[in-house]
Write a protein that binds this DNA or RNA. Structure first.
Length: 586
RNA sequence: GCGCCCGUAGCUCAGCUGGAUAGAGCGCUGCCCUCCGAAGGCAGAGGUCAGGGGUUCGAAUCCCUUCGGGCGCGCCA
């Protein structure tokens, strides 16, 4: 029997055993199984007796013994011990690990998938950079994080939509349009001089100007701003978004939906006004006054009555304005309307990925979602990605203060490659500041985790190539050997350690998905690669542990299956992270 | 002044939503190639988990508090 998830199986067995010795109806939701840190504590440990003791009316160790006795009857179990305050430590028969390995190899790319997502409709919104210029390095962490998280959720049974919110409606896109208009006149031969303060000065708008000049000749110069501005704006946004998409593609970041902020108000009905009216009718929007902000003084503070969202009713600290003094909507107002569309579109789980500078915005957005959902089920989780400090060989790369000059995402990807960028962005918890050293990520050593993990995958394929040279009759697809006889000969401690690590993968995937923490996959892969490299090197001093044994085809086949397990999981994990899995390093 | 995030080995960081004697990389010390890729591996030294209370069978993890760093705090998105 091929096992799909050895820990999930074990949990079922433990619960069955507990059920057999407990009074009916005891809540077992707190019962967990886990791989103990100390191998002396067995392969799998459970806290069942400790968390159930109270309800069972027994002492933890007493209950542990009773459950242990039931578990001993299981065919997969070698021995069961009770230790400490009431841990039940289970040792599985080696055959159980072989089964887990077979399961991994059989399932291939499906290994680690699960149904814990329960087909939940999830909307993951990430990047959402303003369409006013090229993407810079600050954007890429959120992009990679969101993309990997979406992969992870889809892999674990959620229905995921990846979304990009285009902020194409605020004052900043009008500035973009005016800036592009200058470049347009420049492209027509006019000397516009230096780009004035308050405009976007970057060279990246020159192609927009040139495109406008080609398309309209000098026609736009003869019309008032009210007429040319929407035309220029549309063109500029279109070209900026094309650049953004190209940058994202270079990073292997995908989106299903690009949602335009302007579309909220451009249609037949003003959806922002509609949403505010809806909230007002529910009593969550009112006209009122706010106290001036404490601390950082606001110079032109003016006490006035304004339209406010009652976010304090949903856990926020103060109520939040929905209209500016000129009567136009605040960003928050359209964001509320936008999130309403997400709920209307049927999403139950909303995930926003934001930069650290937006962290102060979380409470009000969650308050808004709580107000918007009404009777529907919807939850917003905001994942904040912290700053990236860009370094070269330990020295910070200083960005020029001169406006319009910054390190673009494209430059970084071209220098070190998309794989390195992606992996390093994910090789840290999202809420911790990240040092990204351009010199280090192209190093080929253990110091560089990207290389180290990819090298593990390449090494596996190298074994297959060499094995075919030694045994020309081997099939091209090593996975087809999974049912071969002799796998039980994989009995060395290093081999068992590797099988345990492979068996851990589905559990790690589930935990990472549940916590919305893709970095766990990256760290796991590093550990797996480490175990694999260790076994490999053992072959140097212990030739009988080499993967390819010239005069022992059965042993070789067994080890190839083991290597296939490693390769399967490395490839799967790297795919989740959106990082390539090369079959050789060059 | 308030809110959010962070504080773990000399340095950079994990720590599996509360588990057992807190781990890895770098750096340091000492080892391993007649080798399937040494682009690698093994071993050793190194800790008041910022400090102090609390919750309980059990805390780096949860709560309170102090200290120290980062980010943010109507009419910018």
């Amino acid at each position: 029997m091929a096992t799909k998830n050895i820990f999930a199986d074990a949990l079922i067995r433990v619960r069955d055993a507990a059920t057999a010795v407990l009074p009916a109806g005891v809540d077992q939701s707190r019962v967990t199984v886990e791989p103990p840190r100390d191998p002396a504590h067995g392969d799998i440990a459970t806290n069942a007796a400790m968390v159930l003791a109270k309800d069972a009316g027994k002492k933890p160790r007493e209950l542990a013994e009773a459950i242990a006795e039931k578990l001993r009857a299981d065919a997969q179990v070698e021995k069961v011990g009770v230790a400490g305050p009431g841990f039940i430590n289970i040792n599985l028969k080696p055959a159980a690990w072989i089964d887990a390995l077979r399961g991994a190899v059989h399932l291939g790319a499906q290994y680690g998938t699960s149904a814990i997502g329960g087909d939940t409709a999830v909307n993951v919104e990430y990047v959402s950079a303003n369409p006013t210029g090229p993407m810079h390095v600050g954007h890429c962490r959120g992009a990679v994080f969101g993309d990997a998280l979406a992969n992870l959720l889809a892999f674990t049974g959620s229905k995921v939509v990846r979304e990009y919110y285009i902020n194409d409606a605020g004052a900043q896109v009008d500035v973009l349009a005016r800036s592009a208009y200058l470049r347009y006149r420049e492209a027509l031969g006019e000397d516009v001089g230096a780009i004035p303060e308050g405009f976007y000065p970057g060279d990246y708008l020159k192609p927009v100007g040139a495109a406008l000049a080609t398309q309209y000749k000098d026609a736009l110069t003869k019309r008032p701003e009210a007429e040319w501005l929407p035309i220029v704006r549309t063109k500029a946004i279109e070209m900026m978004m094309a650049a953004v998409r190209a940058d994202l593609a270079a990073l292997n970041v995908k989106h299903d939906v690009f949602f335009s902020e302007r579309s909220l108000v451009d249609g037949k009905t003003d959806f922002v006004a509609d949403t505010i009216a809806w909230l007002r009718q529910r009593g969550d929007v009112y006209e009122g006054r706010l106290p001036p902000p404490k601390g950082a003084p606001v110079e032109d503070w003016e006490d006035r009555e304004q339209t406010l969202f009652r976010s304090t009713a949903f856990g926020d600290d103060v109520d939040r304005p929905l209209k500016k003094s000129d009567g136009s909507y605040t960003y928050f107002a359209s964001d509320i309307a936008y999130h309403r569309t997400k709920i209307d579109r049927g999403f139950r789980s909303l995930i926003d990925v934001w930069g650290a500078d937006h962290a102060g915005y979380i409470k009000r957005m969650q308050a808004a979602v709580a107000a918007l959902k009404g009777d529907r089920e919807a939850e917003l989780d905001v994942k904040v990605v912290q700053l990236v400090k860009l370094l070269r060989a330990g020295r910070p790369i200083t960005m020029s203060k001169r406006a319009g000059e910054f390190v673009t995402l494209r430059e970084v990807v071209e220098e070190v490659g998309g794989d390195a960028v992606r992996f390093m962005m994910l090789f840290r918890k999202n809420d911790a500041v990240l040092d990204f050293d351009l010199a280090k990520v192209i190093e080929q050593s253990r110091d560089n985790p990207v290389f180290y993990v990819q090298y593990g995958h390449a090494r596996g394929h190298s074994v297959f190539r060499n094995a075919r040279a030694a045994f020309p009759d081997l099939p091209d697809d090593v996975a087809s050997l999974a049912d071969s006889a002799g796998l039980e000969r994989l009995a060395d401690p290093a081999e068992l350690a590797l099988m345990r690590q492979i068996a851990l993968y589905p559990r790690v995937v589930e935990a990472a998905a549940a916590a919305h923490e893709p970095h766990r996959i990256a760290f796991y892969l590093f550990d797996l690669a480490s175990e694999f490299h260790a076994l490999w090197t053992l072959g140097n001093t212990a030739p009988h542990l080499r993967f390819i044994i010239q005069n022992d085809r059965q042993m070789t086949v067994a080890r190839l299956v083991l290597v296939q397990g490693v390769v399967t999981v490395l490839a799967s994990g790297l795919r989740l992270l959106g990082v390539g899995a090369p079959s050789e390093m060059r």
